[in-house]
Design a protein around this nucleic acid. Structure first.
Length: 825
DNA sequence: CAGTGAGCGAGCTTCCGCTTGACTT
């Protein structure tokens, strides 16, 4: 933390040196102190309590921000953090009084009680409380909730805002205080109330009509819909193939490639064309050179940082955010949850200085970017290094890499365009109208490409396989000889499944969700079982290739692996069934434009054009009617699909969603002897075959006896396993085992391996009770007391624990149960 | 939470956005 402080000071000093306005600044600062003094004199208690005289409490949302700002403001100000929202709607179903103008009931959230108590104490002793929460809807509401929770009156507070954490910005903010904007607060209340109503009325419908514990909401349900619709596109996609012709020409001993404008639907047609090539004369009939430019990408927002870190470093969005959080906390970068592409003046100056000194004046070009995304509220700066002269951070390699990305992106955004010379070459044949084209590209000025180029998402087939390097010297009218001409069969590709990052991009385009929720939303839909990361090996596919070399035509059949995929988001059966149900009954809320349209109304509320509870009422009345109507009239949604009849007894075989997820069933609902089996993780209701479904009923399999006890193989909640004498051993597919074919010998081998591994973990056992032991776990040694696991304090040596100590620790742990997420049965 | 899947009825689940640590077997 001392590092941060130091760095901020440096920045500050630098600012003094280069900025001619520094005198003005100092004056401003002095004037401020006087203002603060005068302010405090007005307060009724000012003269009574000398100790609290002059004291100003500033409250911001983030503690790291508080530290920085405190260093700007001097000793008359103390700056504290609220750690985000301090109050929220009470939990449960009674937070909103729908019969009384949607009156909300709030409470200080459990984890904020300490924070609120401390702020309350400080506020009491302060002359003035400066509410410096973010300059957006949520920030305004946080200020209001702080007033309520700390019992602050209007004359005791000043509301200040700034969208960058730089000294001039903070001082300017202090000079321009205002009151809390209740219209904006009401817009936030409307947002909050709407989300609670939607979530807490839709979810119970799903519990009744689909499966318990499911959830629905304005953001998550549309997110799942995006995935489901893409999956349907993929399922409905049929791939077609065509032959693409590429010729390699030589001139002056140099080679270059050109592609035919036309593709052929069959091998036959391709062959006919290549035969024409054998006798054709090739000549250049078009030669065009054009200058071209490429501009750098805007500085990072949360969304673009997540995308680039995904593309270039392979990080899931949650990982990116936690690395960024660490960089932010150590003062290396600005705030990482932002939708703004704006850079502060001090940052622009620093970037320019850095570019001029490292690359030269002609690489510098100041640019300001404006946001393209819909719901942007721009309460912060773009994500950038706090110190542009720091080219790299030491230590943790993931932090080094992410910082590197941020540094380069920021710098590049203020650099000149890259310049190219593009060449387009047309090549004609004298015995057909078909033509080849070649493209060349030479960089004439590197510009921003010197440091950074934004990545791209591979989306479908790469259309243009030609290298865009330089072409050899060519002239119009020149006659060419080919070295080789290929016609290769290429297949059209289904649209790509979403990655975490490309999904975030889509959400941002639709204005759904906020920088602080992109990563949590993606983890929510996976936790709820609506989507998962896929892993498909791909399948072998044959393709044809024709090669013409020196008048000799050859035909080959080659093979390639297609459809290999890892880590893409794919909707599950439950995700699809829930989505179809919601889309059918709640089209309005599931509409991709729903958020955008309510945002418009929130804006009206913020501008004082509409009352918030009126707006909510207009939404809620018809919505609630739909909910009741659906509860009463809709069928249960199970996604049932009938696969056919049993080959031996003729009973119906179907797949559907059951209480515990996707399952197969033999026999209909009336059948007294119907049987059930869960689908495997990689199977789905939509694609499973009758043979695969029948296989499921072969488990559990009895393999035989070992030590007079039965050994069985089956598949459970955590995957395939061997069971023996009440103990379970996982069967790992990577070892080439599976429960359908595994033998008794191999099963016994796994049981023995497991015993050995368990013995290794055992540190100590006790004669008093054989169910109690001290074992080595993932996070170090722990006590296993029956089914209870107990942590061992760091200062105690696990090996030396006595029976009495173990009992004492266990009893203490039982007294203070840690809040567990899991519920008891 | 590693054998479930009917139906009953208890009591429970659930939203989005703003922030960090505490905690995990």
């Amino acid at each position: 933390m001392s590092l941060v402080y130091h760095q901020e000071l440096l920045e500050y000093e630098e600012y003094y040196l280069v900025n001619s306005d520094s005198l003005v600044l100092i004056c401003t600062f002095l004037r401020l102190c006087i203002v603060a003094l005068q302010c405090s004199k007005v307060g009724p208690q000012a003269s009574i309590n000398k100790r609290s005289f002059m004291k100003n409490l500033v409250i911001v949302e983030s503690p790291a921000k508080a530290k920085t700002i405190e260093s700007y403001l001097g000793k008359d100000f103390i700056v504290k953090s609220s750690y985000g929202h301090v109050r929220d709607l009470v939990s449960g179903n009674k937070a909103i009084d729908v019969d009384n103008a949607f009156q909300p009931t709030y409470e200080v959230t459990e984890d904020k009680k300490k924070v609120v108590a401390e702020l309350k104490k400080l506020a009491k002793n302060a002359e003035m409380v400066w509410l410096a929460t973010d300059e957006d809807r949520e920030g305004e509401a946080i200020s209001w909730h702080l007033m309520e929770a700390l019992k602050l009156t209007d004359d005791k507070i000043k509301r200040i805002v700034f969208s960058e954490i730089t000294k001039p910005a903070i001082l300017k903010a202090i000079e321009n205080p205002r009151k809390v904007d209740y219209n904006l607060v009401n817009a936030q209340q409307a947002r909050r109330v709407l989300d609670r109503l939607v979530g807490f009325e839709l979810s119970p419908v799903l519990w009744k009509k689909v499966k318990p514990s499911l959830s629905a909401g304005r953001v998550q349900s549309v997110t799942v819909r995006i995935l489901v619709e893409r999956e349907r596109e993929i399922l409905g996609f049929t791939s077609t193939s065509s032959y693409r012709v590429v010729a390699e020409f030589t001139t002056d001993g140099k080679k270059f490639k050109a592609q035919l404008g036309k593709r052929f639907d069959s091998q036959k047609e391709a062959e006919v064309f290549l035969k024409k090539c054998q006798t054709a004369n090739f000549s250049i009939d078009k030669l065009e050179k054009k200058p071209a430019k490429k501009s750098p990408a805007a500085p990072f927002t949360t969304s673009t940082l997540q995308q680039e870190a995904g593309r270039k470093l392979g990080y899931p969005v949650g990982v990116t955010m936690s690395i960024a959080q660490k960089l932010y906390e150590s003062g290396k970068i600005t705030y990482m949850r932002t939708d703004s592409v704006n850079l502060s003046d001090t940052a622009l100056e620093a970037a320019e200085r850095e570019i001029r000194s490292s690359y030269g004046d002609k690489f510098s070009k100041r640019k300001s970017y404006s946001t393209k995304s819909k719901g942007a509220q721009e309460a912060h700066e773009a994500i950038r290094p706090t110190d542009m002269s720091l080219h790299s951070v030491k230590g943790d390699s993931s932090q080094t890499k992410l910082y590197d990305l941020i540094w380069k992106r920021t710098l590049a955004s203020q650099m000149s365009d890259a310049e190219f010379e593009r060449t387009n070459v047309g090549i004609s044949l004298d015995n057909t109208d078909e033509r080849f084209t070649a493209k060349g590209e030479i960089i004439t000025f590197e510009g921003f490409l010197k440091v950074y180029l934004e990545g791209t998402d591979e989306d479908g087939e790469v259309e243009d396989e030609l290298t865009k390097d330089s072409l050899p010297a060519l002239t119009k009218g020149q006659i060419l000889d080919y070295a080789e001409i290929n016609a290769t069969e290429r297949f059209t590709q289904h649209p790509a499944r979403y990655t975490e990052a490309s999904l975030v991009k889509k959400l941002e385009e639709l204005g759904i969700g906020r920088p602080s929720t992109y990563a949590p939303t993606i983890s929510t839909i996976q936790k709820r079982g609506y989507a998962h990361k896929d892993e498909r090996d791909g399948t072998k596919r044959e393709y044809g290739k024709l090669t013409l070399v020196k008048d000799h035509l050859e035909t080959e059949k080659l093979s390639e692996i297609t459809g290999r995929e890892k880590g893409k988001l794919q909707p599950t059966d439950i995700g699809m069934v829930v989505n179809d149900f919601l889309v059918e009954h709640f089209e309005n809320v599931l509409d991709f434009g729903f958020t955008a349209s309510v945002e418009k109304e929130f804006d009206d509320i913020a501008n004082g054009l509409k009352e918030w509870n009126k707006m909510i009422n207009e939404f809620y009345s018809p919505f609630h009617k739909d909910v009741e109507d659906t509860l009463e009239n809709s069928e249960r949604a199970s996604g049932e699909r009938i696969l056919g009849n049993h080959p031996e007894n003729g009973k119906v075989i179907l797949v559907r969603i059951g209480r515990y997820g996707p399952m197969a069933q033999i026999g209909d609902a009336e059948d007294e002897e119907k049987k059930f089996a869960s689908l495997l993780k990689d199977q789905s209701i939509g694609t499973i075959t009758i043979e695969q479904a029948l296989d499921l009923f072969k488990l559990p399999r009895q393999l035989g006896q070992f030590e007079d006890k039965v050994v069985t193989a089956a598949i459970g909640r955590f995957g395939p396993y061997i069971r023996h004498d009440g103990k379970f051993v996982s069967i790992k597919e990577v070892d080439g085992d599976d429960p359908f074919t595994i033998t008794l010998e191999r099963g016994v081998e796994l049981v023995k391996e497991k015993r050995e591994a368990d013995a290794k973990k055992m540190i100590k056992t006790f004669a008093e009770d054989e169910n109690v032991s001290v074992q080595e776990g993932r996070w170090g040694p722990y006590i296993k007391f029956g089914k209870q696991n107990v942590k061992i304090p760091k200062d105690i040596e696990a090996r030396d624990l006595t029976w009495d100590e173990v009992k004492a620790l266990t009893e203490e742990a039982a007294k203070n149960p840690t809040k567990k997420r899991g519920k008891k049965k």
